[in-house]
């Protein structure tokens, strides 16, 4: 049975942990207040001959390293490179929530956008056209209610297909101001030469422009670690 690693990302209080518990059956109490997941949780799920390891990332508003939680979530997506990242959004506050989805889409294309709390949204008279949204974002969008257990099959089915590589994604790219875009264009090839294809060059270039020291340090640590490993195996990356 093949094993896939799935990361769950999302804003605090989007019901991400409820979904995690539902999928993995792990008993973990989830309350309705921001910042509940303080400890990174991992669980397992089997579906259609596939074994999945689910990682519940800390709930964050952003992945731009303003806090330790955000660093954990960012490092996981960029360095551990999960096979699929499920971004859980709160249907009742889609606009604020979607920023995180766009940030994740800049880092990886293997993304399923999962709109949770769809029952709450319905009650509040909020309608979301998920097909249109999927076209705009360029990745699959699934509407669910984790607490009412609706839409879960569709989510698992989408997950299964994405794991099989049957879904071609074409993630949306945020267009920045001309000034920033010019600089990205200038940096992108340099980034590619410096770090190779292991990381999304456009995203790294943005982090550099932003002066994100935390990411730089994480990357350097990572590179040193990799080089040491290579050296031990008797290969030299330098020549």
């Amino acid at each position: 049975m093949s094993n896939f690693r799935i990361a769950l990302a999302g804003n605090p209080n989007t019901g991400k942990s409820t979904l995690f518990n539902l999928l993995t059956g792990l008993r973990q109490h989830t309350g309705n207040w921001p910042g509940k997941t303080v400890i990174h949780a991992e669980g397992a799920l089997d579906y259609k001959e596939k074994h999945y390891t689910l990682i519940d990332l800390p709930g964050t508003y952003s992945l731009y390293s303003n806090s330790a939680d955000e660093e954990v979530a960012r490092d996981h997506i960029i360095f551990e490179r999960p096979d699929v990242t499920i971004v859980v959004l709160d249907a009742t506050a889609l606009e604020r929530n979607m920023n995180l989805a766009l940030q994740v889409l800049e880092m990886t294309s293997q993304v399923i956008v999962c709109i949770n709390l769809i029952d709450e949204a319905k009650k509040k008279g909020i309608e979301i056209n998920e097909r249109k949204l999927a076209r705009k974002l360029g990745v699959p969008v699934v509407k669910i209610s984790a607490r009412n257990k609706t839409g879960i099959n569709e989510l698992l089915e989408t997950l299964d297909q994405m794991a099989d590589g049957k879904i071609a994604t074409n993630p949306i790219q945020v267009t920045y101001s001309n000034d920033i875009e010019e600089k990205i264009a200038q940096l992108e090839p340099l980034v590619q030469r410096a770090v190779g294809d292991a990381f999304p060059a456009r995203w790294v270039a943005l982090r550099l422009l932003d002066g994100d020291k935390s990411f730089l340090n994480a990357l350097k640590k990572r590179q040193n670690g990799v080089q040491k490993e290579v050296a031990v195996h008797g290969y030299s990356a330098c020549h």
Partner: peptide, 11 residues
Amino acid sequence: GPLKRRLLDLG
């Protein structure tokens, strides 16, 4: 600093 960035993230 961080507070400004957090405020930006919140909209």
